[in-house]
Amino acid sequence: MDTSASQRATPRNVITRASCPSTQDIVRDEALAGAPAGTICVTDHQTAGRGRRGRTWSDPPGKALMFSYLARPTRALAELSSLSLVVGIAVAESLPLPTQLRWPNDLVVAGGKVAGILVELVTPATGPPFAIIGIGINANLTRDELPPTDRLPATSLLVEGGVEIDRIALLESLAGRLDAALALFDSEGLPAFLARYAALDGLVGHSLTLRLPTGELAGTATGIDSSGCLVLALADGSTQSFAAGEVERVLD
């Protein structure tokens, strides 16, 4: 990525790195030093990128859009677990291809994972909590460059759309959408996003297996509730909401 162009594109605090272990760590350090909300670190390559549950995020240099965004939300700490859903909506609405959300943090195009989100909440010794939002988008990876995955097959915007993506333009567009989404979340909370999430929900109506700390549970997704929990219809006719878990298999 042309870092000078990236700095020109977005009038905010943008930190650029040709390569780094993780943009999450850089933004965390900036946040602890007092950086303002909306601060971004973007890189062409991460050597120790990470995802949920300790997974790694691998990328060929110069092909993906990888950045971290500093949020300083004002809502109660208990509400911040739904941030990944709000961010997912902003990302999905920024991408040039029809995109679905797969609770809680995957974005899917044509059945393949095209992007992922990692939200890390930090509660410093002094001051309010803040969130580091990591976003990785498979922008211009060829089919041969797609990483192996243990769940969803990977894809890219290039593979599915057939044209290269201007990563700087996508970053600029997405940063603006994140600003707007997080401002709305601060003022109105998750309920302001439920209709938008429902329109993008890639699980609703599908039978799936959810991995929980106590084992696996099968059910049919009916959507999310007002707190952002995944709601499953179970075989006994009951419904149950889940605040955490891993969608292992989508069966139909």
Results as ranks from 00 to 15, higher is better:
residue 125 A to T: 14
residue 110 A to I: 05
residue 104 P to Q: 04
residue 104 P to E: 04
residue 101 L to E: 12
residue 113 K to T: 14
residue 122 V to Y: 13
residue 137 I to A: 03
residue 106 D to L: 03
residue 128 P to M: 03
residue 100 Q to K: 12
residue 93 E to V: 01
residue 94 S to V: 00
residue 131 A to W: 06
residue 128 P to R: 10
residue 138 N to Y: 04
residue 117 I to F: 09
residue 101 L to K: 10
residue 124 P to V: 03
residue 125 A to C: 09
residue 107 L to D: 11
residue 128 P to L: 02
residue 119 V to L: 10
residue 107 L to T: 13
residue 122 V to C: 14
residue 106 D to H: 08
residue 132 I to E: 08
residue 128 P to T: 07
residue 128 P to A: 15
residue 132 I to A: 10
residue 138 N to L: 07
residue 117 I to L: 14
residue 129 P to I: 06
residue 94 S to I: 00
residue 107 L to H: 12
residue 124 P to I: 02
residue 108 V to F: 06
residue 96 P to S: 00
residue 108 V to A: 11
residue 97 L to G: 05
residue 112 G to H: 14
residue 102 R to K: 15
residue 97 L to A: 01
residue 123 T to M: 14
residue 129 P to G: 06
residue 125 A to V: 11
residue 128 P to S: 13
residue 116 G to E: 12
residue 123 T to I: 13
residue 112 G to F: 02
residue 117 I to P: 14
residue 135 I to P: 14
residue 133 I to H: 06
residue 102 R to E: 04
residue 94 S to D: 00
residue 118 L to M: 05
residue 113 K to W: 10
residue 98 P to L: 01
residue 100 Q to M: 03
residue 114 V to L: 14
residue 121 L to H: 15
residue 119 V to N: 14
residue 104 P to M: 03
residue 134 G to D: 06
residue 123 T to F: 08
residue 121 L to C: 13
residue 96 P to E: 00
residue 130 F to K: 13
residue 118 L to A: 09
residue 115 A to L: 10
residue 106 D to I: 07
residue 129 P to N: 08
residue 122 V to F: 14
residue 135 I to V: 14
residue 140 N to A: 01
residue 140 N to C: 03
residue 105 N to V: 06
residue 118 L to V: 10
residue 109 V to H: 10
residue 104 P to N: 07
residue 101 L to M: 11
residue 94 S to F: 00
residue 113 K to C: 10
residue 106 D to N: 11
residue 120 E to N: 13
residue 98 P to H: 01
residue 133 I to R: 06
residue 130 F to V: 10
residue 136 G to F: 05
residue 94 S to Y: 00
residue 101 L to I: 12
residue 104 P to S: 10
residue 121 L to F: 10
residue 126 T to F: 06
residue 132 I to N: 12
residue 95 L to W: 01
residue 109 V to Y: 13
residue 97 L to S: 01
residue 133 I to C: 08
residue 110 A to N: 15
residue 135 I to T: 03
residue 129 P to H: 07
residue 120 E to Q: 12
residue 109 V to E: 05
residue 99 T to G: 05
residue 117 I to K: 11
residue 97 L to N: 02
residue 135 I to A: 03
residue 113 K to I: 10
residue 121 L to R: 13
residue 130 F to Y: 15
residue 129 P to S: 03
residue 128 P to N: 07
residue 99 T to H: 08
residue 116 G to P: 15
residue 129 P to R: 05
residue 120 E to K: 13
residue 114 V to F: 08
residue 138 N to M: 05
residue 110 A to L: 11
residue 125 A to Q: 15
residue 115 A to M: 08
residue 96 P to K: 00
residue 123 T to W: 02
residue 97 L to E: 00
residue 123 T to Y: 04
residue 118 L to F: 04
residue 134 G to K: 07
residue 124 P to C: 01
residue 112 G to E: 15
residue 108 V to K: 09
residue 103 W to S: 04
residue 140 N to M: 03
residue 131 A to V: 07
residue 121 L to D: 09
residue 119 V to A: 07
residue 137 I to L: 09
residue 95 L to S: 00
residue 100 Q to A: 12
residue 140 N to F: 01
